[in-house]
Simulated assay, not measured.
Amino acid sequence: MEEAYRFDERSYDALDAAGVTWQTVQYVLRNRPRVRRHIGAVLNIAGQGADQQWYMVALVEEAADEYLVAGARPLDETEIQAVSKMLERGAS
């Protein structure tokens, strides 16, 4: 089953505050390479947007394979290096 991602008003408010568009979030969620970390009901996905900038998207699992976007932000250089190393090791 393919994952479904949902936005609500709080999602849009959080993205606006971080200066990240919903289109960028969709791009990060749907494209590869990316790093996924699932801890409990929280899913973090790091990947590049169409602008080649690296982003972290935070989601909350509402049901099996259904996620609410909680926020997103650009990664800093240290985080980009860490994500790059994870990708080199085959993390996804």
Rank of each mutant, 00 (worst) to 15 (best):
K85E: 15
S11Q: 04
H38K: 10
Y67S: 03
R34V: 01
R37G: 04
A70C: 02
L75H: 05
R30K: 13
E79Y: 02
E79T: 03
I39W: 02
M1N: 13
N31M: 00
L68A: 03
I45G: 07
L68G: 01
E62L: 15
I45F: 07
Y27D: 09
E79G: 04
K85V: 09
L59T: 04
R89E: 09
E61W: 00
L15F: 04
Y27H: 14
R10Q: 06
K85I: 10
L87G: 07
A17Y: 06
R32F: 11
A4K: 15
A58Y: 00
A41F: 07
E66F: 12
D76S: 06
V28N: 00
D51G: 05
M1P: 14
A46N: 14
R6N: 12
V60H: 09
D13C: 10
D16A: 12
T24N: 04
E66M: 13
A82Y: 07
E61P: 01
K85Y: 10
R10S: 04
Y12T: 08
V35C: 10
S84V: 08
A91M: 13
G71I: 03
Q23V: 13
D16W: 12
Q53Y: 07
D16T: 14
V35M: 11
W54N: 00
A64D: 13
A14S: 15
T78H: 12
R10V: 05
A70H: 03
A4Y: 13
R37C: 06
V35S: 12
D8Q: 07
G47D: 06
E2M: 14
K85C: 05
A14F: 03
D76H: 12
M56C: 12
A50D: 13
A50P: 08
V69T: 07
V57A: 01
A41K: 15
G49M: 08
L68H: 01
A82T: 10
Q48C: 03
Q48E: 14
A64H: 10
A64M: 08
A91S: 09
E62P: 06
V28F: 00
F7T: 08
Y27F: 15
L75T: 04
Q81L: 13
R37Q: 14
T21N: 05
V25L: 05
S11A: 10
E66Y: 11
G19E: 01
A18N: 03
Y67K: 02
R89D: 08
E66K: 13
Q26L: 15
W22V: 08
D8C: 08
L75R: 07
